[in-house]
Each structure stands twice: as structure tokens, then as C-alpha cells.
């Protein structure tokens, strides 16, 4: 999977490294901005109020 991704990247090794870093940074940003907050709404281990 990751080897195939590496082969997909064009250019010399340094460019591939730069592209891979950019690629994973974008993935991480999407996770933090969109996916994790959405996922967090299903994780409710933190009831803080008292009630009946």
C-alpha cells in the first residue's frame, strides 16, 4: 500500500519525500478538523452532571 504510494509519487527521491510529507500532513489536517470532532460525538465517557 505505502510502497505503491511511494511508486506513484513522481520525481526524484527528495521530491517524493516532500510530496509524501505534504500528503500525510493533509490527511492529518482533515482528521483533526473534520473526522475527529465528528467521531468524538459518539464517545461519551464524560457525563459530568448529576441527575435521576
Amino acid at each position: 500500500m505505502y510502497a505503491a504510494l511511494w511508486r506513484l509519487m513522481p520525481g526524484p527521491v527528495w521530491l517524493r519525500i516532500v510530496l509524501m510529507v505534504v500528503f500525510f500532513a493533509v490527511i492529518l489536517a482533515l482528521l483533526v478538523v473534520l473526522v475527529f470532532p465528528w467521531l468524538n460525538t459518539f464517545v461519551n465517557v464524560n457525563d459530568v452532571t448529576v441527575g435521576q
Binding site: L31, V32, F36, N40, V43
Partner: peptide, 20 residues
């Protein structure tokens, strides 16, 4: 895929318990 899933779980925990 499994390694990726494991990394994602740790990323989420790091985000939830620390970064966020």
C-alpha cells in the same frame, strides 16, 4: 491497514485527550 488503524486510534486519543 491494521498498522494504519492502530496509528489512527493513537492519533485520535492524542487529539481527544491532549491537543483538543
Amino acid at each position: 491497514l491494521f498498522i494504519t488503524a492502530g496509528v489512527l486510534v493513537f492519533l485520535f486519543l492524542g487529539w481527544q485527550l491532549w491537543l483538543n
